[in-house]
Nucleic acid binder design. Structure first.
Lengths: 185, 185
DNA sequence: GTCTATAATACGATAGAC
DNA sequence: GTCTATCGTATTATAGAC
């Protein structure tokens, strides 16, 4: 018996995967519990409600992005950082063509009317747009803010179409174009 | 008592609105029945299952698009048709910034793993991309197919970001840029 | 064709023993 | 901290009278 159990961690990890592949509404706490090897009743020791687990999942998504961004810092130029970001999307093209973007699709799902907290799940997208805007600002673009939003919008739209067409090749081709465009200025 | 009741029609209309604002999973047949002024049990006279009602909703979405496209034909040039399409999106910016695109968000939701028919809900997006590709082809673009997918992806991405940022202005600004780009070639 | 009542089940959440 | 058993409710779907 470890002094500190990793059950909370396992629940969050399983929650991320299941919410990505099935969506939040269709993912049950029993699904998450089973995938984590935790009995259903014990889930409530770690999370008061299903929504509390969602908050932890969203938080983990944001932490992950911040880590990735920190890793991009080793690239000397903003251009190279943007390319690295696009490459990271292309790297997981199979999974996101199958289930959509874990950030974008969750944002969509949560921004439908319900009693739930509308804001949290969208922050991942906003964070990405802000980061992209910073890169364009470093490239001395006066329209840096709009360009940042535009870049994330473009990526999200391409993922949505690749998902609808069930074709990862769409991501490769369309984001390849985007990379060429970034190289060109 | 009308010889033919319009209940089926009313159920589809209410279904479209509710599925758009709440999502398919969170919309109950009781919701749709109440909004249509039809008793719950009677819904099953018109639709065998909830999924059958979804199919009718998707079908109605596709019919609507085909009608809009037919109306665009009065514009002389492919460029003008594309502009008219973008204008129609901008016209409903408030609603789509609030709830997302009725076509795109439903496609996302249905493309999550479940026993349900994965394909149907995405056809609206594919139809739009094909139509856009035809316009680019008429403009003698050799990369017309990719451009069509790219245009619909761009629109969908912009809607997703406007939804995440809860700001219809994003749609106006970003699609304004897109319109200028279309004018330019 | 229409409607009421209800069956069948799935799921979030809790109680309480250990 | 952990686990089993179960409650309460929401929701899809059906039965059957009219």
């Amino acid at each position: 018996m470890p002094r500190t159990s990793d059950k909370r961690e396992r629940l969050i990890t399983a929650g991320r995967e299941l919410i990505h592949s099935k969506g939040f509404n269709r993912t049950t706490l029993a699904d998450i519990a089973e995938a984590s090897g935790v009995p259903l009743g014990n889930v409530y020791y770690y999370f008061r409600t299903k929504e509390a687990l969602l908050d932890a999942v969203v938080s983990a998504q944001k932490d992950d992005f911040r880590e990735r961004v920190a890793a991009f810092e080793k690239h000397g130029s903003p251009r190279a950082r943007l390319q690295a970001f696009l490459n990271s999307v292309i790297d997981s093209k199979e999974e996101i063509a199958r289930y959509g973007c874990p950030i974008g699709s969750l944002s969509q799902e949560m921004n439908k009317s319900s009693g739930l907290s509308r804001a949290g799940a969208s922050e991942g997208l906003i964070l990405r747009a802000q980061w992209a805007s910073e890169q364009f600002r470093a490239l001395s673009r006066s329209d840096a803010q709009d360009l940042g939003v535009w870049l994330i919008a473009s990526i999200q739209g391409v993922i949505l179409m690749a998902n609808a067409m069930a074709d990862p090749g769409v991501i490769e081709r369309q984001l390849g174009q985007l990379k060429a465009w970034i190289d060109a200025f």
